[in-house]
Design a protein around this nucleic acid. Sequence first.
DNA 1: TGCACTTTGGCAACAGCGTTGCTTAAGTGG
DNA 2: CCACTTAAGCAACGCTGTTGCCAAAGTGCA
Lengths: 370, 370
Amino acid sequence: MNGSRTRTQAGVNLPALRHHNATLVLDLLRAAGADGISRLELAEGTGLTPQAVSKITARLREDGLAVGAGLRPSTGGKPRTVLRLVPDAQFAVGLHLDRDGLTAVLVDLAGRPVAVTTAPLDLGAPAEQVLGDAADAVRDLSAAEPHKPVLGVGVAVPGPLDHRDGVLHRVTGFPQWDGYPLRAALAERTGLPVVLDKDTNAAALALALGGAGGGDFAYLHLGTGLGAGLVLGGEVHRGARTGAGEFGHQTLQLDGPLCGCGGRGCIEALCLAAEARGDRGEAARVLGTGAANLVGLLDIDRVVLGGRTVAADEDAYVRGVRAVIEERAARGGAGAGVTVTVAGGGDRPVAEGAAQLVLAPVFGRVGERG
Amino acid sequence: MNGSRTRTQAGVNLPALRHHNATLVLDLLRAAGADGISRLELAEGTGLTPQAVSKITARLREDGLAVGAGLRPSTGGKPRTVLRLVPDAQFAVGLHLDRDGLTAVLVDLAGRPVAVTTAPLDLGAPAEQVLGDAADAVRDLSAAEPHKPVLGVGVAVPGPLDHRDGVLHRVTGFPQWDGYPLRAALAERTGLPVVLDKDTNAAALALALGGAGGGDFAYLHLGTGLGAGLVLGGEVHRGARTGAGEFGHQTLQLDGPLCGCGGRGCIEALCLAAEARGDRGEAARVLGTGAANLVGLLDIDRVVLGGRTVAADEDAYVRGVRAVIEERAARGGAGAGVTVTVAGGGDRPVAEGAAQLVLAPVFGRVGERG
DNA sequence: TGCACTTTGGCAACAGCGTTGCTTAAGTGG
DNA sequence: CCACTTAAGCAACGCTGTTGCCAAAGTGCA
């Protein structure tokens, strides 16, 4: 009668409690940005007492993670002291290993890029060479902020992989990477903690943390292929095998045209075929239908579109996707109030999201949900 | 620069920590069932020290929630004392309000039903009358275990609703329920805490807690309609508006046959049409295609089928759904290792799952994830 | 039978968490 | 100038899990 999955190591002791509450305060400080936030507001936001917040913020100030930043206008008594995150106290590196290029970015605690490098990359080259290029990029960027700690390296890769053990699976078209322990290898080369994730998940994480608006959302990336990144409950949903977000090969047309994957009527095939023959409206309608399916299944709040194909005509895709979702909602189906936007910024958000893989735990956003 | 959604009240103080660790221990005790579990195993499972576990279990024993249950064979030293949950220390009521019937069940802490009542019900009757029937059922069941605390009432209802505030929305075909605050009304009548959820979510919760096997899964219910309940990360995924699980009206055939919802090519319409014309193989293939889409999107570990239509020919549906998923996995797509099973037990699991809505928080499984 | 050894689990002291009660700091407004 | 209000630190406190130690309860060999 062994019910439910076994939970492992979820016990909380005092150091863990202290850390948890500190990350909570840091998260609110980060959300407040340059405007800052007062101790009493932090207390309200966390549910802790003002005195506890005072103690926690005192420790953060001692560690150089927070500073006072002026006073609020008085409301009849002593004015509140505003606290602010010190963004350049620590940094993180984000790498985007794409099929033909390497983008590396050094971001501060606020997630803002302070240094960027791009270079051509041949993902088909020997692993040692690619790894060397990646390690070099990390070293160069770290030099941009000497004497400041770099928390780790986040790596975004296109292909299937396992987020937990940091091992690549058969990256489409590059069989030499199958089973390659990228996380361990890069960690040894750089001496830094390394986190690995899919490019779409990294992009979704960047949108979840840096972008406007909260709630659950799906990031749909339409480029050479079609993939999705899901953010549910404030965290990236990956699934047990980091396989979640397989969106392009959802069947949308039973017994439809053959797709490269061997299936029939896949969204990706339908969408890209329409795009190829110049029928952008139909491409957007197909994408919108898939998005509407997803919105209904997960009760998503927003849909964010991105990728080169979308960037070529953002308006057409946003309008087309929105139209399908709104039509379904108007019939009484799901999707009322769902917003449809574009990510913008090209591919840079992926590298920044990769860096957020490292930063997220600092703010209590682990993204380790399944 | 207001990033990410605002977190509210996530601060943890000592009473909260104590409660959290206690629920963790209770959860392991429940998972161990009648076999019991030793203190050291609890320590290993929670990550707490053996001494902390001793203190926690001492409190649980004082509260009558746990008892000693014999000794393990010695391994060369003092044998371990086995602890066991006391299932009949507390109880919960589950109600399944269906279109034509009311099923009520009293379950113990282990989730086992100790009393069941079923009665015909007209969901179209005035709210006061339905409410009275429900309250009567709760009262009758509570009488089965006098002097033992009943923790609350879980209610499973077919239609759209809001799990958070416990208000019904337009239950299909019964407009009088639109906006009705069922939770508050029933809580007042019974004097007990009330939790409300969709019937498919309740069924999924019952499967998550009582059934075999862990991991993320989807419960697909094919009866008069087609709906889904999703369990991700050990908790029911509801979405912000309790709208998640809208599966029947996913488009599976662009510009396909018209569905009752006004859309075209919905899974439900295709599936039920095939079933109606006796083509069960096609119905299973349609259902399987939708399931495969879902498996890929969320990286699900298992698919569980249920509902009257499935019950009529379980083998055909399991085989059909499994075939589609395995075919896609064999092509290199998602779904390798996914198991397909049937829920069994007819509609009773729904009422038991409703009771689990009340029990889940006792074991730290809130199911409040988004 | 006795004694050394292993393992479990409680007792007592402890460090450290957030909380409570109170005081001090720093404003406003009559 | 003074009463009042609001913010925030100080000190004592209760309670958490942890640590160090020891008693309890077995096994197994001499």
